[in-house]
Design a protein around this nucleic acid. Structure first.
Lengths: 192, 192
DNA sequence: GAACCCATGTAAGTTGTTACATGATTGA
DNA sequence: TCAATCATGTAACAACTTACATGGGTTC
């Protein structure tokens, strides 16, 4: 159910094509909700069937056909209702943790490699998040700029603040994972 | 693919019935990998078809029928292979974050309620994790006791250490989320 | 002409959820 | 006898993944 609202939220900032959305949900928006294009295109059609978005075929650039979706009033209303409802937290499913607790029969180097990969993974994420936080602060993050333009001046502080908050949350998480992996690696040094 | 290995890992400690596994994957093991009984029963049958586990029908207690699964040699080998392979990290899908970034049109109280719920959710988790960490340290955590009994003495430090590590990771995460929510709530105070 | 990006889709399969269904035992 | 716990399953559906499929435009 969440993909439709993530799409709706995105479209509420600015009309977009399936391709635009697929790009964002694989990249920047992917830092909150990942989705592939094969999931997005059918969902957009369903959203249109339900009257939450409306589309127009654009043949602007020579030959290029493109379907642009914009949010409807009903879409705005449904999105708002969903946003305000309490969140149902997804059950935990953590492959890396499952591996870790059962790795007690493996050589220590294997465990070390896992922990190093874990650290690396979150260091890579941290680098991206940090860069994006900078862009948010400098007011050059494209999605932020567009949202500010489409909303009343009075919402300015909230719009910027909430995006910064969300990004900071990602940064906190990444740092926590890195710190944990480092502690784990030092502990592992003393083993054997 | 991960459910089967989580089940296999679990069974590698001690033979178990579908019901046992369903209980654990909904409770303590659920803190690493949640699964419902309707997913577990068919998966156990498939594991048996593939020769990774073997089962025996037990009619011990009067009337009660129960199928106990134990791991096979092939199962042990496949589990070990999977454990040692690098982890593929699941794409991010965070409903709460999606809500937050689009909540800029909602009243501040709604945002506050979301953040308070978030803090509460992770405080509840933290309480459970903290209790379980205590049990691990005191050596009374049932799964730890069973695993120690089924493995060579030399693996003792690793078995205990890895479980403590995993639980500490959960605690770190919970604390991070709580801290983030509190910072967010203070920031929200200054808004309006 | 090859490689790459834009652009949109479908099909088959896997994984996970929710609800339905059954039946025995235990304890209040 | 009523509720709870033990115990195992199936069915329908929703969500997600991977692979297949097509075609135009741009750039080297």
């Amino acid at each position: 159910m969440s993909l439709r609202y993530a799409l709706l939220g995105f479209i509420s900032t600015e009309p977009a094509s399936g391709f635009d959305l697929a790009r964002e949900f694989g990249e920047s928006m992917g830092w909150f909700w990942y989705a592939s294009h094969s999931q997005i295109y059918p969902e957009l059609r369903r959203l249109e069937d339900d009257g939450l978005v409306a589309s127009t075929e654009v043949t602007g650039n020579p030959g290029k056909q493109k379907r642009i979706y914009r949010i409807t009033e009903r879409g705005e209303a449904e999105l708002q209702t969903w946003l305000e409802q309490p969140t149902e937290y997804a059950p935990m499913r953590d492959v890396e943790r499952v591996k870790l607790v059962f790795l007690d029969g493996a050589p220590v180097e294997v465990i070390r490699r896992h922990l190093e990969d874990h650290r690396k993974h979150h260091e890579d994420l941290l680098a991206i998040y940090t860069q994006q936080l900078g862009e948010l602060h400098r007011g050059v993050f494209p999605r932020l700029v567009k949202r500010l333009a489409s909303r009343p001046e009075s919402a300015r502080e909230l719009i910027t603040g909430l995006k910064i908050l969300a990004m900071k949350g990602n940064i906190d998480r990444a740092r926590t994972e890195i710190g944990w992996a480092e502690d784990a690696l030092s502990w592992l040094e003393g083993i054997q």
